[in-house]
Each structure stands twice: as C-alpha cells, then as structure tokens.
Write a protein that binds this DNA or RNA. Structure first.
Length: 288
DNA sequence: CTCCAGGTAC
DNA sequence: GTACCGGGAG
C-alpha cells in the first residue's frame, strides 16, 4: 500500500479552499448544520444558506424552540427538504438527550434523525477532532482510482470505511487532515468527469494512472430524470406553501395548473406522509 | 445529458 | 441491496 497520507497532507496545506466550517471555533452546531446542507448539495449553494441559518438559530435549542414549518421555510430552495425536517428533529433530540450540546460520540450522533455514517463521523472528526474514517462520494472516487485502479467507485458500502481507515495516519491531527484532504482532492482535482491528473499530488502513487486510465465501467446508480418527475411536483407544491406561509392554501388551489392531476395528488400525499405538509379542513400548510 | 461533503425505509 | 427524495450548474 503506497503512502497517500503524506502527499495529501502536503497538498492540502496549500490547496485547501477557505470554507466557513473549516475556521477554528466554527462550532459543532455549525459543522452539523453545514453537513446536513452539504448532503447532495454543492458547496457554493450551501454557504449563503448556512450563514442565514446560523444567524437565525445559533444553537440547537434555538432551532428546537421554533416550529418545523420555520425550518422548512428557511430551507428555501436548497432541495431535499426532508433534510430541513430532520435537522429540526435532530435539534429537538439534542436538547432532549444531550442538554442542547451536539454529542461527540459517533453512536450518539448516529442515533440522531438524518445522521448516517458520513455525517456522524464528519461531526466527530471535524468538530471534535477524533480519528474516524469520513467517507463521502469524493473520498470513494479518490480511493477507487488511487488504490483500486478503477475509474469510478462501486456503490457505497461498509468496505469504504475500512479502505479509508487503511490510509489514515495513527496520529489524530494528521488523520483529520487526511480525511478533509481526500474529500477536497475529489471535489477539486480528482473529479468525476474531467480529473486534472496533472495537478494531482497522488499521481505518482495512483493505480488508475499506472494502469493507463482504463475505463473500468461504472457501477454507480443512475439518477432518475428530474423533469416531469414526482420530485419536481413535490418541489412545486412545497414552493407554493413556502411562498404563501404562514397562510395555508386551499387543497383545490395547490398547483391547480399542474399537467398531471394524479401526480399532483401523489405529491401532496407524499409530502403529508413525510411530515413536510399538513392538511386539515381542506387546507394545506407547512408542519406546525 | 451529467454531477453533487447522503440518509431513510421498504 | 434498492428505490426514493430537489434543484441548480456545467
């Protein structure tokens, strides 16, 4: 196994982007909120929303004291609005179970709503300085190329955590940097479509490069089309509720001009099932 | 068309 | 293991 940690650390020192959540003292709550927003959403779209969110709710207790509707409304057009609901639930759980302090223990973090393997370890590592493997889509791609010699990673699995652990230095501070540097490399250099291998600190050690950049196939899931999808319909319903909030909307007026009435009804029902909307007396509103 | 600091529930 | 969940930018 080649040493990837040393070149990653050296590269990160000079190439890391200056992102808000990387500033010392940003705080565990700030890190947690940023990680929720960064789930499937690019950095540049997150930053303004993150700052507005933390200005309004500087602590888990502040968010927990407001209605879920406020969280869904503040989430605006970030996408995957269940994350807003989950973040609110997590804040309530943090107040109930941890006296309002974001827990540092991975298992305690995993027990919070909306937090899985990635987010739990990201908070434990980046907010609390612990040594754990932090594995996101960028990390999986870097490891697939540098170690396995494959163009694209397999679908996420527990093996990813083992693979990442294998390249982490024993020393805690260095392991934190390697976690961040691997994600950063995947986000800015070892990208999915047009990697800049001439600028890569791992070029000398990369198995994919050594093999001549073979096209090893692509086992990733294909994303469903968005145009005309149920997701688009849900987004339209929720946007209407946000724009009207706090005023509820008569059910008969909810995206009344949507071309597919069946799909519109399905969208409303699924939003209610997710807890993102509530219906009563013929009116639809954000969750109270 | 593709991609994106994932997680949940079945 | 698979399906589902937004929206914007390239």
């Amino acid at each position: 196994m080649p040493d990837l940690a040393t070149p990653l650390i050296a590269w990160y020192r000079t190439h890391a982007r200056d992102l808000p959540w990387r500033h010392p003292g940003f705080g565990a709550w700030g890190v947690l909120v940023s990680e929720f927003m960064l789930q499937q959403t690019p950095v540049n779209r997150v930053i303004p929303h993150l700052q507005a969110w933390l200005a309004r709710w500087p602590t888990p207790a502040a968010l927990a004291a407001d209605a879920p509707a406020e969280a869904v409304h503040q989430w605006a057009n970030l996408g995957y609005p269940r994350r807003a609901l989950w973040l609110h639930r997590a804040a309530v759980e943090i107040v109930a179970r941890h006296d309002g302090d974001v827990p540092a223990d991975v298992d305690a973090l995993l027990a919070l709503t909306g937090i899985g393997d990635y987010t739990a370890r990201a908070v434990a590592v980046f907010a609390y300085g612990q040594r754990h493997p932090v594995v996101d889509t960028n990390t999986r791609r870097v490891l697939a190329r540098a170690i396995d010699g494959r163009a694209q990673p397999d679908p996420p699995s527990r093996r990813d955590l083992i693979a990442m652990t294998a390249i982490l230095p024993d020393e805690v501070t260095a392991s934190t940097i390697v976690n961040a540097a691997t994600m950063e490399l995947g986000a800015t250099v070892c990208t999915a479509r047009a990697p800049r291998c001439d600028a890569c600190p791992l070029a000398a050690a990369c198995a994919w490069r050594a093999a001549g950049y073979p096209d090893t196939g692509d086992n990733r899931r294909r994303q469903a089309r968005y145009e005309g999808s149920d997701r688009q319909a849900r987004g339209a319903v929720l946007r209407m509720l946000r724009d009207a909030a706090p005023t509820p909307i008569p059910l008969a007026e909810v995206i009344a001009d949507w071309p597919d009435a069946r799909q519109r009804d399905r969208a409303v029902d699924s939003l209610i099932a997710d807890g993102l909307a509530e219906a009563s007396e013929g009116l639809l509103r954000l969750p109270t």
